[in-house]
Design a binder for these strands. Sequence first.
DNA 1: TCCCGAAGTTCGACAATGTCGAACAGCACG
DNA 2: CGTGCTGTTCGACATTGTCGAACTTCGGGA
Lengths: 253, 253
Amino acid sequence: MPGRIQSVERAAAILNLLASGNRRFGVVELSRFLDLPKGTVHGILATLQHIGFVEQDRVTGKYQLGASLLHLGNSYLDVNELRTRAINWADSLASRSREAVQIGTQHDGKVLIVHHVFRPDDSAQSLQVGVLLPSHATALGKVLLANDPSRDPAEEDWALVTGLTITDPSRLEIELAQVLVAGWAQEIGEAVDGEAAIAAPIRDDRNLVVGAIGIRGAIERFSYDRQHVRPELVALVQDAARAVSRDLGAHRG
Amino acid sequence: MPGRIQSVERAAAILNLLASGNRRFGVVELSRFLDLPKGTVHGILATLQHIGFVEQDRVTGKYQLGASLLHLGNSYLDVNELRTRAINWADSLASRSREAVQIGTQHDGKVLIVHHVFRPDDSAQSLQVGVLLPSHATALGKVLLANDPSRDPAEEDWALVTGLTITDPSRLEIELAQVLVAGWAQEIGEAVDGEAAIAAPIRDDRNLVVGAIGIRGAIERFSYDRQHVRPELVALVQDAARAVSRDLGAHRG
DNA sequence: TCCCGAAGTTCGACAATGTCGAACAGCACG
DNA sequence: CGTGCTGTTCGACATTGTCGAACTTCGGGA
């Protein structure tokens, strides 16, 4: 019988639910979400627990994600070609720009951060690898959206992240069109209050955009008028993006 | 039918295999490892690919881990109580000791790093969250082994990591006994050439050891004679461990 | 103190489900 | 142009997971 394996898909649905709120879930709660008998859900949970993908709180009986997933996620980083190739250039971009560097891929309509270099000379930063960020509010996301031919612009609805986030679809489309021709994107205070970012696309050997690299930091260092970012920084990001693309086998630009 | 769900366990076995070498695996290769028909393996892989847990190289047809796992692993960190409670104390330990801080849990006989604070004023460090380290060669691991009542000392065989790694079981047992009474462990050049580490146990509300916190850095800063570490550093680590334990609800020191 | 409700867990019958292995298709090498 | 690898498809079979009712445990009200 060809097709998807039901129990594996259900197990994945449970894991995704568990990942969706940072809290523990009960059996009946999960069974309501998935519209499945609680006996069935319990059986899957018992299996997932046995393999370490979920853990059960010994006092409340509720379930949460398990430690094995942390190691699996980390192992993914080792085989991610984009990240492997980009690491060296990311370090260099960080030291030249003196800002934090992020590398992201499109995942599920959002931006998945696969690499993060801290800003030099500043250790009070939190690590972002593995985080999913909203596409429309980040420079990385705008680059990925603008270069994604297979998306449906009408479909999504964009949530407000900060007061400055672009939520109007038509205004976003205009900006994405500009990003596409310019070859880079900016973002000023749209994702985090007081922070700005710049990003440029990374292309593979078929010249398809497979990711984006960018820098992020305080608005004051990125922009003098809170409208336009400093061209020197844009040039640094574009140089890094081109260098990574070349490493991945891209031919043009 | 109570018990484990076969297909889910098989899917997990495939994921673990894929995580075990940083390379791509073919269908037949996996089917040989698991002793399953390749049709079966292919069906599971197709499902795992559909849910984003594995990805297929479009040119070679081989499989590797998928990006969804990175996000799931990161989500695990949000619900990990040990990590949540320990973060603040870890930052403080890092700034007091001026060394990199690690927090680890026992997982599969090894040490799983769940949190990592970079050494202040030094940005050339690689992130370790999600990494599995050998127990017998690290200070964190020694603390966890010494406090694990359910392990079988005879069973394991300890691999050489550096020239200084302890591989003799009886010598290791003696050291673990000392760790247990002293309440902390050291490690000098046994995991990484030129690096030393100190760790102490973290206890939960039942006074069981659920993790360990420690610092790691260049041997020269940790020890003057390459035999004993500086007592001031040990005191800092023990203070931090006690503080985290108190946060977790532990009663006695 | 008792009862009720809601939680997590167990269990067995049923049939839907995943498994198996042979056959197919595509590629690289000789 | 065959030969030996891949990864993939397919259908029959019976193993396997699913379902839902019954059990147990816990905690809050009455």
